[in-house]
Every structure is written in structure tokens, then in C-alpha cells.
């Protein structure tokens, strides 16, 4: 465990004198690989939760020293500042190609991309589809918050019908801008992918489910089963112009109508 504040500081402010065994009974701590730094993420953003899950899962699988991450261009570009493993940073949309190069050279390492919706489903759609279609043995973590956060709130390919953004000021109109793009369902048309699932991080239950799926995705790679993609519906309170709690409810009540949660494909279970 790293020094400094562990987790969110639960139970720290007590003044009661405790026995040594009581003090050592840790309820919640920072995963080894989660660096003790302030993130640049906004309040209520889903990236923080996902970074923590990523660090937990890699640690629990015992692959921190084998992991190589590929950061995107987008809000998560600085993911390497928060998770203490080998990283590189791809040009916008190119993470699956970069990961392909890394994984082919190091088939024994655990290679993953961490991408947002603009990066993965707009500018990088060709790389996304072709890496999936080749069945590259990599794990893709897809953070879908239905907006371009880093560039301050433009329409994403996953923006909901009617959703107001900087570039759809009167709401997304499918007549001129098409429909929310369902990446998991699209990739489900391909033969090669082995695990495609959509989840979210807005309740503790969902966080636990997401962690289990993420673990499964990395296990697919470690067992050389093949390509996996975990899509995470993630809140962006800032550019949805909501409070964090409103954003969380919005995902549960509205976003999941367009993007139903669930395992879209799990070849491992089917086999």
C-alpha cells in the first residue's frame, strides 16, 4: 500500500484510542497502482471510478507488472498520471492500432486501450472495427459519456436524440446527425470478438458488476481467448449541465433506454 490518504478517508477522523489490531483492520484502501495524486476530472465524473476499478482488477489478477495501457485523446488522456503501470498515449482514435503493435510484439503482456466515445466510435471507428475483426487479443475499455468532454461539450456519435450540446444547440436531430451509435451491437456483427458488454458505474451494484466484467475481459486476454470490449455508460455532469446526482439518475432513467445494459456477447460462456 502506498503512503498518504487511503481511499476516501473513511473512518479517519476518529479520536478514540484503538488497539493495534483494530487500527490495522482496513475497510477500504487505495489500490497499489492508483497513484496518490489529485485527478483533473470534474466532480461526479465516471473516469475516477473506472481508474480505480482498473487498478483493482490488474492488481487482483496479479498482472500490474505485465500491464501496458494505451491512453486516448480525450478527457482520459492523462490516465497514465493516475495508474502506475507502463503506458503510452495514442493519437486520436488510433489506440487499437497502437495496442495491436504492442500486443503483437509482446503477446505475453496484458495490453489494453482506454478510450472515450469520440476517440473510439468517431475518429477511431475504423481502428476499432478492424482490431475487433482481427480478434486482436487485447482489452478495450470504452467510456461512453455521450459527449466530447475535453473539447468542452460537442456532440459525440453516442449523443442521445434530442440531447443539447455545443454543436447540437437545439438538440441532436437524427435527420441531420444520425442516431446514437451502438458500438457493442455493431461489433456483435463480427465473428472474432469474444466478450462485448455494456455496463455503468452509477450505483454500487453497477460498480461491482462493472468490476466483474472488467476482470473477465482481462481474463479473456490472459487466457488467449481474444478481443473483448467493455462499454461503460459514464456520467459527465459538467457538459450534461447537471449535478452529479442528476447525471447518475439520468443514466439509469434515460441513457439506458438508448444503450441497454447487459452482456451482448460472451463466447466464453457459450462455449
Amino acid at each position: 500500500m502506498r503512503s498518504g490518504n487511503a481511499g476516501n478517508g473513511m473512518g479517519k477522523k476518529t479520536t478514540t484510542k484503538r488497539t493495534e489490531s483494530e487500527v490495522k483492520r482496513v475497510l477500504y484502501e487505495r489500490p497499489r497502482a492508483l497513484l496518490d495524486v489529485h485527478t483533473h476530472y470534474c466532480a461526479g465524473c465516471g473516469h475516477g471510478t473506472m481508474h480505480r476499478l482498473l487498478a483493482e482488477v490488474l492488481e487482483e489478477l496479479g498482472v500490474l507488472e505485465q500491464a501496458i495501457g494505451v491512453a486516448p485523446v480525450g478527457c482520459a488522456v492523462l490516465a497514465y498520471d493516475y495508474v502506475d503501470i507502463d503506458w503510452t498515449e495514442a493519437a486520436h482514435g488510433r489506440a487499437p492500432a497502437v495496442a495491436t503493435g504492442l500486443k503483437r510484439v509482446h503477446p505475453d503482456k496484458v495490453v489494453f486501450t482506454y478510450q472515450g466515445d469520440g476517440d473510439l466510435a468517431s475518429i477511431g471507428m475504423a481502428e476499432t472495427i478492424h482490431a475487433a475483426n482481427r480478434g486482436e487479443n487485447i482489452t478495450v475499455i470504452f467510456i461512453n459519456n455521450a459527449i466530447y468532454g475535453m473539447t468542452q461539450g460537442q456532440m459525440a456519435p453516442t449523443t442521445l436524440i434530442g440531447q443539447k450540446t455545443k454543436t447540437t444547440p437545439r438538440g441532436r436531430d437524427p435527420e441531420t446527425t444520425g442516431y446514437p451509435l451502438k458500438v457493442c451491437e455493431l461489433l456483435d456483427q463480427l465473428v472474432a470478438p469474444v466478450l462485448l458488454a455494456r455496463t455503468t458505474v452509477v450505483t454500487p451494484k453497477h460498480v461491482r458488476q462493472t468490476k466483474a466484467l472488467l476482470k473477465k475481459a482481462f481474463q479473456c486476454q490472459m487466457e488467449n481467448v481474444g478481443y473483448s470490449l467493455i462499454e461503460v455508460l459514464s456520467p459527465c455532469p459538467t457538459y450534461w449541465h447537471m449535478t452529479p446526482m442528476e447525471a447518475y439518475h439520468f443514466i439509469e432513467q434515460t441513457v439506458t433506454d438508448s444503450f441497454p445494459l447487459g452482456v451482448i456477447r460472451d463466447v466464453k460462456d457459450r462455449a
Partner: peptide, 17 residues
Amino acid sequence: AESELAAINMVFGASAA
């Protein structure tokens, strides 16, 4: 590769590796 963009970025990955 699926494109020149992908090709150079695969090379990026391999070189980084």
C-alpha cells in the same frame, strides 16, 4: 493494416514495445 493511419500507429505501438 486497415489504413495507412492504422499502419503507422501499429508501428508506433511496436516501436514503443
